[in-house]
């Protein structure tokens, strides 16, 4: 993997509103670094500051303070660097009176990268070749989203910034896009900065993630690292309450309807079984469970809210 830094932000902040009462600090001193060639997940609840950050990276919103760099170049001072970026921001939006193909032509010409053959290739790649002459106002949300992906890829960018790229897509469409994103990084060496609410999706495609809440990064790291050590054991035993009492002496235990969730690693399961058997508890099943990114995300967000 190349060690080039694709995205870097230093103390990036954005405050909306001039009057003190209406002032909202959407992003607070964000420091972020994304290495080239990675698929980087950018997660956060609604209003966390994800879209504002993405818009600052694209030069759409001016930061109140701090700086954003793409490939080492300042976004606002060296606008040309944005030619290396393709983006799909907060739902695809197009000229409704133009066809899909014409929309792509307009965007390509705006960026001085018009190539009819590439437009046809991209339309075919996103499955819109047959509907390319139809006006966009007749497109479904999913079709617009596909066209948005094609638009993002027009200039063969090194960096793709995708904000909720699978919005409005059916499960097979989502799977296609996931595979496509992974291929972009693995085969073509592209960097993908992906913001999504679908945490299962992020977990499947991203190398690293950052979790943002209330305008600040609350966790950042490789997906595997963040979830490592966060595994649990699912224990089915009788009597359940007695089993819980025995195990609580050593681990954190949550009692569910018919099973216990024990904060123990998979390699601790023989010890769990021995403790239970020694206490006269019947053990029916012990299975290792890895914490999902969704569970991790919810825990981190709740924790950050508690500290706020």
């Amino acid at each position: 993997m190349s060690q080039t830094v694709a995205i870097q932000t230093r103390g990036l902040s954005k405050t909306f509103g001039r009057r003190a009462r209406k002032r909202i600090q959407a992003v607070k001193g964000l420091n972020l670094e994304v290495q080239a060639g990675q698929v980087y997940g950018f997660l956060g609840p609604n209003g966390a500051g994800k879209s504002t950050t993405i818009r600052m990276l694209l030069g759409l919103i001016h930061p109140t303070s701090g700086d954003a760099y793409l490939y080492g170049q300042h976004v606002r001072r060296q606008h040309g660097v944005l030619r290396r970026v393709g983006a799909l921001v907060e739902g695809a939006a197009f000229y409704p009176f133009l066809s899909g193909r014409r929309n792509l032509e307009v965007l390509a010409r705006t960026a001085n990268c018009y190539d009819p053959a590439r437009i046809e290739m991209l339309l075919a790649q996103v499955g819109l070749a047959e509907r390319a002459t139809q006006r966009v106002k007749g497109y479904s949300t999913g079709m617009k989203q596909r066209l948005g992906l094609a638009a993002a890829l027009l200039g063969d960018p090194d960096l793709l910034i995708l904000d909720e790229p699978t919005n409005g897509l059916d499960p097979s469409g989502m799977h296609e896009i996931r595979t496509f994103i992974r291929e972009l990084a693995d085969r073509h060496g592209k960097t993908v900065f992906l913001s999504s609410h679908l945490l299962g999706e992020v977990e499947q495609v991203c190398d690293r993630v950052a979790i943002i809440n209330l305008g600040e990064i609350v966790r950042e790291g490789a997906v595997e690292e963040l979830l490592a050590g966060k595994s649990t054991l699912r224990v089915e035993a009788q009597p359940l309450q007695r089993a819980a009492e025995v195990l609580r002496a050593h681990w954190r235990v949550t009692v569910n309807e018919t099973w216990l969730t024990v904060s123990a690693r998979r390699d601790e399961s023989p010890q769990v079984v021995r403790q239970l058997v020694a206490a006269g508890v019947d053990v029916y099943q012990v299975t290792g469970q890895r914490q999902t990114l969704e569970e991790y995300f919810l825990a981190v967000v709740q924790e950050s809210l508690a500290h706020a």
């Binding site: 694209l58 759409l60 197009f94 705006t110």
Partner: peptide
């Protein structure tokens, strides 16, 4: 109204647009 500035602003200089 169409939300299309976000598509074209990163593609060229604002003054040129």
């Amino acid at each position: 109204q169409w939300g299309t500035w976000k598509n074209i602003v990163p593609r060229n200089r604002r003054f040129s647009l």
